[in-house]
Amino acid sequence: MIQLSYLDYSAVEGKSRLHRYSPMVKMIGMGLVLSGVVTLRSLTGLLLLYAFLLVLFFMSRIPLKIFSLTLYPLIFALFFIFLSGFQIYFILLLFLKVLCGSTGVVLLLATTPYPSVFRALGKFLPGLFVTALFLTYRSVFILLEVFEETEHALHLRGGVQWRHPWRTLINISNAFGHLLIKGIDNSEKMYESMVLRGFKDKIHYRGE
């Protein structure tokens, strides 16, 4: 989850040419990448697409820590290997498709601030849904703060110790319970302050 802060930082503070393109252009580009992922059936085509995305990734000077995010979906792709009878061609094709998709998405989010993405999405998705997306994104950061405090408390109560699995499970569960209760309390306060500021089903972004 720490990578989320890096993504946000990279999107807001980045100064590369890709950062300066309009969010709509980048989202259309992402759409093209996804069409490539869905329709390409040759290793050469997918390799070229992946190489192109990698070049864009490194040209955009995105922090290397974020690159690990693009590899994460491979864990889930591993399960599909068992379907294929371990055929190399299928495995490579699958991995390249997965890598192209995830690299494209991470590239988009690391060069475009979330509010801009949501504003672009708001043009063709229901307003309430986009508001829910924005509030969730905002809430992740609020809960991250609560989570950091809870982590300290958790550490003082023994934290995560694999020698004591039951104690660990209780600690983790209490931390999540605390997180949920704090989250619900915060959501009530957030709603009151939003109403006070004139919230009516839609969040307006700067420039609208």
Partner: peptide
């Protein structure tokens, strides 16, 4: 719509908790 709108912050918080859960 009114009910969804009123409960959006709660929905956002719970969704955020699920996102955090997915990250741990």
């Amino acid at each position: 719509k009114g009910d969804v709108s009123r409960r959006l912050p709660l929905l956002g918080m719970m969704a955020a908790a699920m996102v955090l859960g997915a990250a741990v």
